[in-house]
Write a protein that binds this DNA or RNA. Structure first.
Lengths: 143, 143
DNA sequence: TATTTTAATTATCAAAAGACAACTAAATGA
DNA sequence: TCATTTAGTTGTCTTTTGATAATTAAAATA
């Protein structure tokens, strides 16, 4: 199978991932935060490590000024905290607060509920296959 | 492996897919269209079949009024055309025009270029494995 | 030490996207 | 046939998001 066909499959695949993810995350975003704010919190939560403002700005592709503004708003909602790097005091590490963690935990539980609903007809063998496939793509494509 | 761990992997996986897709599609959106408009065109292009306004509204999760407005704008840019269903004349099928197809073809070529750059170190065996994994996920998870 | 670069902030303005009410026209169904 | 539902449209207002310039403070470097 040549590269070209793989690429075409990937276009479809990406679109499917987006569609299903959309579906699973329908209505899980708390009303007090906006879409970008949700993306930022999700990014921080999944990263599980101190993330700087620059990294957020880079990865989610919002400008530094706008990232800074949204982080400030999330701070005002007591969902994140800033702490400057002791090595380089220009850098700001962003953390979820307890409140932020609690909120995101609830979000993921809701998504998991939707996910289990979606997969209720899948066999154990199916789930194993899915897991293997996810591992492969995670390593070889989405690193 | 139990469901819970698979779910956690999927959270990470989804986040990775988003990040890499973001990366591959960086700067490919033509300046004359907005982000939502790009999403709509991409949705129509990937679907490869007549799509109604309701379906666009459903899948991309924008309200009917807003979907209608964006489609009108895309029509004014000569990128899409509407054609009412002969069976049910309330329904509007949305198509890419020649211009729309040409634009999206260029977009996908650019993404493919970025993709090939990204994968230049992958072996033929890697690519085969990736393709198998994509097929599995497409069938068993992202249907 | 003086200059330049980097990380982040603040303020402001413009554009995009979302929400909602009121409407038309076609289809469905009692 | 008449009421109701469905698909889409139009207009308007608000909120969110994006873009840019100016600024601060720390770090790197000449």
């Amino acid at each position: 199978m040549d590269n070209k066909t793989l690429f075409n499959k990937l276009i479809t695949f990406t679109s499917s991932v987006l569609r299903v993810t959309n579906d699973l995350t329908k209505d899980v975003r708390p009303d007090i935060i906006t879409q970008v704010q949700y993306e930022i919190l999700d990014f921080i939560a999944v990263a599980k490590q101190p993330i700087t403002l620059s990294e957020i700005s880079d990865c989610i592709r919002i400008s530094m000024p706008n990232a800074s503004r949204e982080i400030r708003k999330l701070g005002e909602l007591h969902l994140v905290e800033k702490k400057s790097d002791v090595e380089d005091r220009r850098k700001q590490f962003i953390y979820l607060t307890k409140d932020g963690e609690t909120m995101m935990k609830k979000v993921y539980q809701q998504i998991e509920f939707n996910f289990k609903n979606r997969m209720e007809n899948a066999s154990a063998e199916d789930l194993k296959e899915i897991e293997r496939a996810v591992d492969i793509l995670q390593t070889k494509l989405y690193f």
